[in-house]
Write a protein that binds this DNA or RNA. Sequence first.
DNA 1: GGCGCTATTGACCGGTCGGCCAGTTTATGG
DNA 2: CCATAAACTGGCCGACCGGTCAATAGCGCC
Lengths: 234, 234
Amino acid sequence: MSILIKQRPERTPADDEAGPRRRDPEATRAAILDAAEELFVDFGPNSTSLSQLARRAGVTKSLIHHHFGSKEELFAEVQQRHFRLYFEVQKQMIAESPSDARLLENSLVAYFRFLQDNPKSVRFFSWSLVAGDVCAAEPEKELFELGIRKIREAQEAGEIRDDLEPFFIIKMMIALPMSWFQTKQETLSLIDSEIEPRELDSLYLADAVRVFVDGLRPAAQRSIERRPVAAASA
Amino acid sequence: MSILIKQRPERTPADDEAGPRRRDPEATRAAILDAAEELFVDFGPNSTSLSQLARRAGVTKSLIHHHFGSKEELFAEVQQRHFRLYFEVQKQMIAESPSDARLLENSLVAYFRFLQDNPKSVRFFSWSLVAGDVCAAEPEKELFELGIRKIREAQEAGEIRDDLEPFFIIKMMIALPMSWFQTKQETLSLIDSEIEPRELDSLYLADAVRVFVDGLRPAAQRSIERRPVAAASA
DNA sequence: GGCGCTATTGACCGGTCGGCCAGTTTATGG
DNA sequence: CCATAAACTGGCCGACCGGTCAATAGCGCC
């Protein structure tokens, strides 16, 4: 992902004379996919025209149809390519995390950092949900079940309170970071801050973790520092 | 909002004889605005065509231009009309709520119920954030400042832990319900449930309140016994 | 070295978009 | 009662949409 300096209209490093057009279907496909991802993420599929996309990729419109069929198929491919990466990373994150007391804290932080480093994922999700299409339902289901199992283990071990539905916990754990980055621009317009955005992210994350783990009650009403007995297993 | 049975081609309650076409600019404007809101919310501004909109409102396309100028101006008016209502309701909610220990719990429930009853607001926000426009920045700022003041009071009274930034607390309080309803369709596809959606909402809300107020730590590590949650069932 | 495959091109299609305008109909008020 | 303003209509515009197609040109293979 990312850089995409390749505007591709340079035939060869030296395009002095009327050099014959080089062929490179792989690079062409990649250029189209990259440009498509960028534009789809910025403007949404319906507001991205094939002409615009072709211009950006340094390619003729017909070539897009040649390689991908229709705009719809192209979008599906871009979507699939993106979510494949997303789910792979998430699955690995969950699998790696130990199901101890800090399971959710660590997961929340990891997920937050992931979205921070992958703003495209945030916008992809935003577009998916306004479009109302339930994309990638299968891998997502798998991901949720994996997470639910982890949380159940931690609940049975007395690490997490057991009067909460694991599915809902995951929902909240996604909501807190996702919503933060979705509304980031709005946030920056609300606070006239001299603080740099990434620092602001970290401050929010710290508070989110505090609330997520300990709630909003004042410390005086919590027993964390003077916990009477060891946690009794449920 | 809402019903919009008015397809408008009925001239008068009694359109017996060939009654001359009645003029009613107010009703026309309203019909256009209602149709526009509905379509913009469903498909987004860019994917809603004026012809489609005119058909829905029972009006010619030219009439839309006559009353609103351009599509852009029409959208602005719809947006403004919607957010004016939204902000008014929210402001009243905040002003009414007592800044006691259950301030945030009550606010979270109230906001959740509001979104539950106004799905259009959820989608409006979704569209706003993919569009990237910071609409209605002024009233929103006012709203946040109001909420921040309330939270500060509660913090100073020792009702809410004071090591949290009020702005972030509000962000989370918005994120938990908003994100739930934004992804509602996805949720329903994830769980193959026999439970009815509104009941599911209440279950999520109950857990969200628990986490928001008390965090995720097991009860054995907290000093306060669980108190019943204020989530009134649908 | 020629031949077939295919990546690549540019011209072109019907359709729809947002917007405009000239004209008709209705309400109003002097 | 008629002049005038405003509500309303149908038709039209140029631009652009997604998509097609025949022709061209680079590449691998025998």
